[in-house]
Every structure is written in C-alpha cells, then in structure tokens.
Design a binder for these strands. Structure first.
Length: 272
DNA sequence: CACTCTCCCTGAAAGC
DNA sequence: TGCTTTCAGGGAGAGT
C-alpha cells in the first residue's frame, strides 16, 4: 500500500515526464474519493511538467503555468508511465498524453485516491495539505518536538504514528515495522514515552523508511515497466502480516487497534 | 478541541 | 469446485 516510501519511489520514477508537454487529458472516471475538477483538462492541456515532488503521501506535479497537479494514491492507486501502444486496462481512470508519445496513467481499483489541480501558490492553503505535521523523513524532526505534542496523550503510540497531523507519511504497514525495530510496544501510551525512547523511535522511522525506499517500495507495481514486477521490500517485513512467525523465542502477534491491524512481538516489545 | 468510529471501494483470500 | 462473506487500508466527516 502506498505510504511514504512508495510515494517517494513513484515520484522518482516520474522523472521521465519532467519537462514534457501535455497535449491531451482524458478522464475516464471522475468520481474518485473526490470528483476530479472539471477545469483540469483545460488547465493541463499544453502545459509542461516543471517539477516533481512529494509532500507526505501526496504527489505534487508542478506545471510551468503556476498550477500544480496533486495526486494522492489512496490505498490502491498507481501511476504508470507507458508508451503509445499501451492499451487501457480496467481501473485506468485518468490519462495524460505527452507530445513525446508517453502517457501517464492513474489506475486505482478502489478509488480511494484523488486528483486535484490548484494554483501552486495556494497549495499550502489546501485543507488536505495544511493540517499535515512534519514529514517523517525531515531532518528537522526532533524527539523534543514529538515529546511536547504527545506527553499528555492517552493514545497508544501505534495510533500516534498514524496521525498525519503529528508526523506525516507513516501508514499502517510501516507503523508496525518501525515499532518492532524500535522495540517499543504498539500499546504504550504517548504520555508514557520518555525522550530517549522517542529518539529511538525517530531513528527507527528513518532507518525503516529509507531502507524501504532503497528497495523501491513495498507493494506497488513498478510503474516504469508493465510487467507487474513488485517492489521488493515486502520480503523485508519483519512483523507485518507475519502472525505466528517465530522471532527469537517470541511469536508475532496480531491485534486490532482502532480498527487497524497491528503486528508485534509481545516479549520483545514489552515496555508498557 | 481531541479523540473514536464509520464509510468510501474492489479484489484477494478465507469460509462454507 | 464455486458461491458467499470477510477483510484490507488512508483519511474525511460524523459523532462523542
């Protein structure tokens, strides 16, 4: 599922459309999580891709006309760049056609993602961007910063990691992996975490997310080819989806917190 | 305000 | 084997 590493990997792979000019736009399904704005076609046509970046789990495609295309992959969204002989498949909802014959395709079976077009200068004013906390990979992220925000929190740390208003970019899969790496119980409440363990948590966050990026993301199909090759970090999951797996003399346990599955080792992560 | 729960959707996997 | 049910996950919005 697309979390920070998958989005980062996707953005890097989009470099093939950098500086390319759009000659047409087709919306096959406008009803995603939100409706794709009607004016998007007119704005995008004849514009050029000027810059590619990531904000949390949002893909930002800046155009040369002071507008930015915003794409969120939701849970099942994919972006792929294909050549002119590509035949549209099921759930290809949105297509950009470039003058160099390439196409950019947004495919999303569950339609939980969304596509928006905004003036670049207004990007930070969008409600979905405005509330975001510091990026999980920001070098400016410090333990003190987090401590100040969670030192009174009665919410378990697993849920805190998923709160995009505090730290942006971590999703359900990496939350379990990060807590396992930091040897911190997912059940421990925010207010119980002292600075030293928050430091460890931040260290593990950087380690796990960076490693996942190196491996090309965990579970997204490789947009650079059409062969459906999987990103290969999945095989690096230590606990996610590994219920019952033996680790030392412990076994991975699955619990449900706030309706989300959590995987952890009760003995190795037992600091409640 | 802070927090929890439900829902959006489809396909894979489990259950029968 | 094949049909039916359950589950997965990000985040907005409703509810507490």
């Amino acid at each position: 599922m697309p979390e920070l590493p998958e989005v980062e990997t996707t953005v890097k792979g989009l470099s093939v459309i950098l500086n390319q000019k759009i000659y047409n736009v087709k919306i096959h399904t406008s009803k995603l999580r939100f409706k794709i704005p009607n004016n998007i076609i007119n704005i995008l046509r004849n514009s050029k891709i000027a810059n590619l970046r990531r904000i949390a789990k949002y893909i930002i495609i800046d155009l040369d006309i002071n507008y930015s295309l915003v794409i969120h992959l939701g849970m099942s969204g994919r972006l792929k760049t294909v050549s002119s002989n590509y035949k549209r498949i099921k759930h290809d909802h949105f297509i950009l056609y470039f003058f160099n014959k390439k196409k950019l395709i947004y495919n999303d079976p569950r339609k939980f993602g969304f596509i928006d077009i905004v003036k670049t200068k207004d990007l930070q004013k969008q409600k979905y961007i405005m509330g975001l906390g510091i990026d999980a990979l920001s070098p400016n992220l410090t333990a003190e910063m987090i401590f100040n925000k969670i030192s009174k929190s009665e919410v378990p740390i697993k849920q805190i990691l998923l709160n995009q208003k505090l730290i942006a970019g971590i999703g359900n899969i990496y939350a379990s992996e990060i807590l396992f790496d930091a040897k911190i119980s997912p059940l421990i409440l925010g207010k119980k975490l002292e600075i030293s363990r928050i430091m460890k948590l931040i260290k593990s966050t950087r380690k796990i997310l960076k490693k996942a990026i190196q491996f090309g993301g965990s579970s997204i199909r490789d947009y650079r080819s059409t062969d459906g090759t999987l990103g290969n970090f999945q095989s690096n999951f230590k606990v996610y989806n590994k219920e019952g797996k033996k680790i030392g003399n412990d076994r991975v346990k699955k619990i449900v917190q706030y309706g989300r599955s959590t995987f952890y080792c009760p003995k190795l992560q037992n600091n409640n």
